[in-house]
Amino acid sequence: MKRDKNKSIDNEGLAEPVDSAPTSSDLHEAGPSETTPNPHLPEETVHLIVFKLGAEDYAIRIEQVKEVTVTPNVTRMPRTPDFVKGVANIRGDIIAIMDLEERFGIRPVIDANSSLLTYTLVIEAKDYSIGVVVREVPQSLNLSVSKIDKTPAFLQDINIHENYIEGIAKVDNRLIIVLDMFKILTHDEISELTE
């Protein structure tokens, strides 16, 4: 079943609602610190879904996210790489559920107060979908493109393949790592599984 191009965000059970994403991105601004350099020329903005992996903020462009849902019942698949949590039935489609913390070796932050509820971002690649589990409620954020630093110098020092990182955004003293999910899916996961 093909869902239409408008992304649906499942609000059910979310502690704070996430914006249901409008395709026009001119209305929404992330925070007070964002300023537009030239008010007469509306700047190009990018709409991100922000989520936590370990203690850090990560983000994906909303175009790459098909939907956000409370993580459904996941059936474990024995003898698959650890970052494959299993398969789940999301609206009749059976898709693979991935754990990016496991994938990138990010130490999970176990907070005694946090609920057991996790969320799944359904990412739509060219001819298939994949689910990515995140611990906290994902948030939506509009940002001007200029806020994303595409080539920070430290990229070579970290353990996530630099190709997967589209850039680093700084908003309100927060540092957000913007991932390119398509590159993660096309390159790496598949070759890992065929080994």
Partner: peptide, 25 residues
């Protein structure tokens, strides 16, 4: 059939959904 990227795992011929909605490998 398993969808990508799981389709390369040959231990499983596919999946099916049981009447209960549960996934069966």
């Amino acid at each position: 059939p398993l969808s990508k990227p799981l389709d390369t795992i040959d231990l499983y011929g596919g999946v099916t959904l049981l009447g209960t909605g549960k996934v069966c490998l």
